[in-house]
């Protein structure tokens, strides 16, 4: 199963949601933000190396942290040397080996996001309630539809209730309230389940994980 976490706009919390969801689903988290990686860096080969043919997808998966992570390089030179369309195949290889992959897609709808969506079985759109974020999220959902990645749910980040997002997107909407714990967890490469197992946000992440499992289960 490959789940793409998309949003269109930067800064809406895609990476954090992807990381937490990967933890909840026991999946590999793939940091596909080729130009602006923001999940914790680890040692060893990264996605830049994989997309440039210097490493295989499997050897780039780091299993040392609380979540298996295929990190992304942070250099411009590395980003320049990538073949973004090769991302589809990379994700398929990871999913074949680890069963589940959650992809943290970059902001903007470039070929890298497209390649992730093309490989994905389903997607999760992350937005805030700001207008610019919502219109980018609608565009992201359009691209996902074109590429046949079913929309599992819309995550309305930094909000206590989803407002009219459910109606606007025609999909389940889950609000994630602003949380100090989640920000702190992500910064330290920890999962929310580890530092705040009983928190409200943890419960919402679990709710999202259940939605994902329900909508992409095979017969």
């Amino acid at each position: 199963m490959i789940l793409a976490v998309i949003g269109g706009k930067g800064g809406v919390g895609k990476s954090t949601v992807a990381f937490e969801l990967a933890a909840a689903l026991d999946a590999v988290c793939v940091d596909a933000d080729l130009g602006m990686a923001d999940l914790p860096a680890r040692r060893g080969p990264d996605l830049h190396d994989v997309l440039a043919g210097r490493a295989t997808p499997i050897e780039a998966v780091d299993e040392s942290g609380p979540v298996d992570l295929l990190p992304c390089g942070r250099t411009l030179a590395g980003a320049r040397g990538c073949e973004p369309t090769a991302l589809s195949e990379v994700l398929e290889r990871v999913a074949a080996e680890y069963d589940r992959a959650v992809v943290d897609c970059p902001a903007g709808l470039g070929r890298d996001s497209g390649a992730a969506l093309a490989a994905a079985d389903a997607c999760l759109v992350v937005t805030t309630r700001e207008r610019a974020a919502l219109s980018d999220a609608l565009r992201a959902r359009e691209l996902a539809r074109t590429l046949d990645a079913g929309l599992v749910a819309v995550v309305v980040n930094f909000a206590s209730d989803p407002g009219d997002v459910r109606e606007r997107f025609g999909a389940p909407a889950v609000a994630l309230p602003e949380s100090v714990a989640i920000a702190r967890a992500a910064r330290h490469g920890l999962t929310l389940g580890e530092i705040a197992p009983d928190g409200a946000v943890t419960a919402r992440i679990d709710e999202l994980a259940t939605l994902v499992q329900r909508s992409v289960s095979s017969v």
Binding site: A79, G114, A118, T146
Partner: peptide, 16 residues
């Protein structure tokens, strides 16, 4: 198919 759709999107790579 998907490949054509993806090819039609912008190239995310930074310029040289």
């Amino acid at each position: 198919g998907d490949a054509a759709v993806v090819a039609g999107l912008s190239d995310p790579r930074p310029p040289s």
